[in-house]
C-alpha cells in the first residue's frame, strides 16, 4: 500500500489539477503551453537518453543466446537467428524482438509443487509462462494502433492508412460512435498487467511506485479517452481544431471542449514528459540491447576494449633488431639478415 498509494495519488492529483484548470478557464496553459512543453521534453529527453547510452562502450559481444554458435563447418544445427554471426541474422533477431517480443515469449516460471497426503518431498517444476507475453503484446500493439488512429486529429487531409486502420479497428460496428477493438484490448491488458503486480507475491515485493505510476497513468488515459468517446461525449471538430492549431504552430483554443478532454490531455502530457526519465525508455532501449543487437563474432573478429590504457609492447621484430648482432654471434637463427 505504501508503494501503490503514492502512484495512485499522483494520478488522482493530476486529474483534479486538469479539472480545476478547465473549470477556471486556464485553457491557454493546459491546452497549449503544457502539451508543447511536454512534447519538447519528450523529444529532447529521448535523444538525451539515447546519446547518453551511446557513450557507453560495448567492447565485447555478449553471447547470452540459446543457440549453437557458428564454428566448424561440420557442426550441424547452428542457429542463424538465435546466435547470428553476421548482421542479417541480427536484423531478423531484432525484428522478432521488437515486433513479437521474442525474449518475453521464452518467459518461464518456477513453482514448488506439493503432493497432498504423501511423504514425497515437494518438487520444483519449471514451465512456460505466456500470459505476460500475450498481455504485453496486446498492450503494445493496441497502444500503437491507438496512437496512429489519433493522427486523424493531427493531419489534414487525413492519410489513407490512418482511415484504413480506423475502419479496421471499428470493424465490429458496435454502438455509436463505433467501439474500437483496441480500446477494449488495451483496457484488459493494462488491468492484467496491474493485477499481476498486486496478486503475485514476488512481483508485489519488487514493484516500486515507478512501476505502478505508468500503469495508473495509462489506465487514466485509456479510461478518460473512452469516457469521452463513448459516454460523456465531446465536440470532436473542436478537438481537431485545437490539435491542428498545435501542428501548424497557430494554437487556438476553441470553446466547449469539456473537462474530460483536458483530463485526457494533461495525463498524456505527463506521460510524454515522464517518458524519457522512466522505465518507459525501454522503447528506445530495446534497440540498444547488447545481447540482442550484436552479432556473436567474438572468435572471428578482434574487439578492442576502448578503455584499455596503452600497453607497452616489444615485438619480436624490434627484439631482433636490438639483439641481431649478438644473436648471430651466438649462432641463434634470425629472421632478417
Amino acid at each position: 500500500m505504501r508503494v501503490l498509494f503514492p502512484a495512485l495519488a499522483v494520478v488522482v492529483g493530476l486529474i483534479i489539477l486538469a479539472s480545476l484548470g478547465a473549470a477556471l478557464g486556464l485553457d491557454a496553459i493546459f491546452g497549449v503551453l503544457v502539451p508543447y512543453a511536454a512534447f519538447v521534453t519528450f523529444v529532447f529527453g529521448f535523444i538525451y537518453r539515447i546519446v547518453k547510452w551511446a557513450q557507453v562502450p560495448v567492447p565485447f559481444r555478449i553471447p547470452s543466446t540459446c543457440g549453437q554458435h557458428k564454428s566448424f563447418p561440420w557442426l550441424k544445427n547452428r542457429s542463424r537467428i538465435d546466435n547470428p554471426s553476421s548482421w542479417p541474422g541480427v536484423v531478423v533477431r531484432m525484428f522478432l524482438e521488437i515486433f513479437c517480443f521474442r525474449s518475453l515469449f521464452r518467459n518461464t516460471k518456477a513453482e514448488i509443487h506439493y503432493t497432498p497426503f504423501s511423504a514425497d518431498p515437494p518438487k520444483v517444476v519449471y514451465g512456460s509462462a505466456k500470459w505476460l507475453w500475450l498481455a504485453g503484446l496486446a498492450f503494445h500493439w493496441s497502444f500503437l494502433l491507438i496512437v496512429v488512429r489519433h493522427y486523424r486529429f493531427f493531419t489534414e487531409p487525413i492519410p489513407w492508412l490512418v482511415q484504413f486502420l480506423e475502419s479496421l479497428d471499428g470493424f465490429m460496428q458496435f454502438g455509436v460512435p463505433a467501439l474500437y477493438m483496441t480500446d477494449g484490448l488495451i483496457l484488459a491488458a493494462v488491468t492484467y498487467l496491474f493485477i499481476r503486480r498486486v496478486v503475485v507475491p514476488q512481483l508485489r515485493y519488487i514493484s516500486l511506485p515507478a512501476d505502478y505510476f505508468p500503469l495508473f497513468l495509462i489506465f487514466g488515459i485509456v479510461v478518460s479517452g473512452m469516457l469521452m468517446r463513448y459516454i460523456t461525449r465531446i465536440d470532436v471538430v473542436g478537438v481537431k481544431e485545437l490539435a491542428m492549431g498545435w501542428v501548424t504552430l497557430h494554437p487556438t483554443v476553441p470553446d466547449g471542449i469539456g473537462i474530460m478532454f483536458y483530463i485526457h490531455l494533461l495525463l498524456v502530457s505527463v506521460l510524454l514528459a515522464y517518458f524519457p526519465f522512466s522505465k518507459l525508455m525501454h522503447a528506445g532501449g530495446v534497440f540498444l540491447s547488447p545481447t540482442r543487437n550484436l552479432a556473436n563474432n567474438n572468435r572471428v573478429k578482434r574487439h578492442i576494449n576502448p578503455w584499455n590504457y596503452p600497453v607497452k609492447v616489444h615485438t619480436y621484430e624490434e627484439y631482433e633488431d636490438e639483439f641481431r648482432d649478438l644473436m648471430k654471434e651466438a649462432g641463434i637463427p634470425v629472421e632478417k639478415e
Partner: peptide, 29 residues
Amino acid sequence: MMYDKKLIIPGLVIFVWLMTLPFWYNSGK
C-alpha cells in the same frame, strides 16, 4: 564520445522525423 554513430544517429533522425511528422505534413497549409 559516442559509439556506433553510424547507426544511432540515423536512428535518432528517424525518431525525430516520426515524432514531428504532423508538423511537416501540415506545414504551409
